[in-house]
Design a protein around this nucleic acid. Structure first.
Lengths: 187, 187
DNA sequence: TTCGCTAGGCTACGATAGTTAGCCTTGGCG
DNA sequence: CGCCAAGGCTAACTATCGTAGCCTAGCGAA
């Protein structure tokens, strides 16, 4: 490689991800990313096809990290404890990456990005299978994920406006859902 | 009012809403909206402060319609039946308005738009109070809404990729959540 | 009847961002 | 030692939001 590269795809993705979280999706400009990595905007196109391609790369990066976080949380052997740890890790990750987390589930934004998050479901399915039994694994997992994702999304959107304790609502919901898992009974 | 107006705020909002659903948020341009209502783009600014203001108006329109839909669904008197009807109406509305529905819960997009959806919660809270008892009303309602919203969001985002019957998963989740409501017992 | 006032159009323009075209420099390798 | 391409850069094109300022039509008062 002649003429030492002043940046890299990884650096661009990292800078983009950082700016994305910091300023929001609309405010993420190629110029700002370029400045952050120390080149001019057009040079970014040597590494990245387009702005939306940069979004795709960023969200893949986020999804990979989320997958790793979930895998790490599911190591105790007890399915209920694992599930509690995974939901907590999931919510914590979303709180740490609110913008990109929200973007991961935006229909338009990145076709294929959600595909990657499927990998995250492997550990969850294994745990839920123990709790709900093989017949109900998929719908039970979808119930849990839907609840967790919906709760977090509304939380991040500021949709819980009626007062009350949001933490308590989270605990309440998780207890309710765990309590009703068909296979076993209680948490 | 001199020189008969060629358009109106309502027409602009309606056209914008239609284009928004049809082409997605990124593709909604002021020029397209102007063309749809029969004027030039700058004339829109006589009625609408900015593009983001147009988004706000559109989402208010959507939220009002959703609220009316939910109110209409909750008239049977039986709380379980009402709750089933409301969740079905909610999901149906989201399926009919996928883009705007998703946008309603986007944190950035429109500060205050979520506030309006609070009005929608009045009917829900009344029903849930009967099912879960006064102490658990708020967390129980949040559990239901979080689940429904999460499920619908993932559905719209195409996040249910592992096969299986999505309808069955919806029914399963709703049954599970209804079954565990503290106040009464079964659906 | 007439004439001013203003709502509500319009064209022209400026600013910002994404993206492309095409040039130049650098330095590894034959 | 010189070729050549990776990877910078500047310049320029395009689309879009938004503003400035002009023009017209018709309501209503004199």
């Amino acid at each position: 490689m002649p003429a030492h590269a002043q940046t890299s795809t990884a650096a661009i993705v990292a800078a983009g991800r950082h700016l994305l979280e910091e300023r929001g999706a609309d405010a993420l400009t190629m110029q700002d990313v370029a400045e952050a990595v120390g080149v001019r905007a057009p040079s970014l196109y040597k590494r990245v096809r387009s702005r939306s391609d940069l979004f795709r790369l960023i969200l893949e990066d986020v999804a990979d990290e989320l997958t790793a976080s979930l895998d790490a949380a599911a190591g105790s052997g007890d399915p209920v404890a694992d599930l509690r740890a995974m939901t907590a890790a999931y919510r914590g990750f979303a709180h740490s990456n609110p913008v990109t987390y929200t973007l991961m589930f935006a229909p338009d934004s990145v076709p294929g990005a959600t595909a990657r998050s499927v990998r995250s479901s492997a550990a969850l399915l294994r745990v839920v299978a123990e709790l709900a039994g093989p017949q109900h694994t998929l719908p039970a997992a979808r119930t849990i994920v839907a609840w967790a994702h919906g709760f977090i999304t509304m939380e991040l959107a500021g949709a819980f406006r009626l007062g009350g304790d949001v933490e308590q609502a989270w605990d309440f919901g998780l207890d309710q859902i765990l309590a009703v898992m068909p296979g076993r009974s209680r948490a």
